[in-house]
């Protein structure tokens, strides 16, 4: 008979994988999203167009499909399966995890890029002009006046996106990444015990609540003074 503790033990690795996927995605997707946002605002038109087209495609197709493509396309199309890549030294689980992580990072970077771009473009022109007539340089303007307003603009949409990421991590199971949902569904499949699935539900709920709470605190702090 499975107990709460024994199930927790069986899910432990899944927990770790889910958390790793979540934090590593944020770690890479935020700076990459910033880069994408900058490129999609560049004056050089061809690059700007390519960037926006790429973002449009990624945002317009399911993450599920992107996961399949990243993980299986190298094997199917180029006869060079991800699992056999040198860098993974035969660690199949690691190769799947890295493939999934790559897809997550690209996907979320595109969503973040649009949020960052919106946050920057929503700053009223008057703020830049006020700085300009006061003789401030471009970098002073950005770091002393604009940046904090951008951060304030993006907190709410980022909160939504990060909560979505919490739940999206469950998609990694489709490319054989044993995250918490996969681990729980294995218990169901092999032992016909369903409650571990609800256990994972509670985990996602708690995790989302925590993220919402943290972003809420940040937003409150930033908007203590203005608007």
């Amino acid at each position: 008979m499975e107990t709460f503790l024994s199930v927790t033990g069986k899910l432990a690795q899944g927990f770790g994988t889910t958390l790793a996927l979540f934090f590593l995605t944020l770690l890479f997707a935020i700076p990459l999203g910033l880069l994408f946002a900058c490129i999609s605002r560049m004056r050089f038109k061809p690059l700007r167009f390519l960037m926006r087209a790429f973002i449009y495609i990624i945002r317009g197709t399911p993450l599920l499909l992107q996961l399949m493509i990243v993980v299986y396309l190298p094997g199917i199309a180029f006869d060079h399966p991800l699992t056999k890549w040198e860098i993974f030294h035969g660690d199949v689980a690691l190769s799947y995890f890295c493939g999934a992580l790559f897809a997550f990072v690209i996907n979320y970077a595109c969503y973040f890029a649009e949020i960052f771009r919106g946050g920057i473009e929503n700053i009223p022109k008057g703020q830049y002009e006020a700085c300009e007539v006061l003789g401030m340089s471009r970098s002073q303007t950005f770091f002393k006046v604009i940046l904090l307003q951008v951060i304030r603009n993006i907190v709410a949409p980022m909160s939504n996106e990060v909560v979505t990421l919490v739940k999206d991590t469950a998609l990694a199971r489709t490319v054989s990444v044993v995250e918490i949902y996969f681990a729980a569904s294995e218990i169901l499949r092999l032992q016909f015990i369903i409650w571990p699935l609800f256990y994972t539900g509670a985990f996602y709920l708690g995790f989302s609540a925590l993220v919402t709470l943290l972003f809420g605190m940040l937003e409150k702090r930033l908007s203590r003074y203005w608007r």
């Binding site: 703020q127 006061l134 401030m136 340089s137 904090l148 307003q149 003074y225 203005w226």
Partner: peptide, 22 residues
């Protein structure tokens, strides 16, 4: 400006001194 364009994240005193400080 017609629309003031004060810096919302700074208080009145900071709005006055920011550019002079830079």
């Amino acid at each position: 400006f017609q629309s003031f364009n004060l810096f919302p994240q700074y208080n009145v005193l900071q709005n006055l001194t920011l550019a002079a400080m830079m």
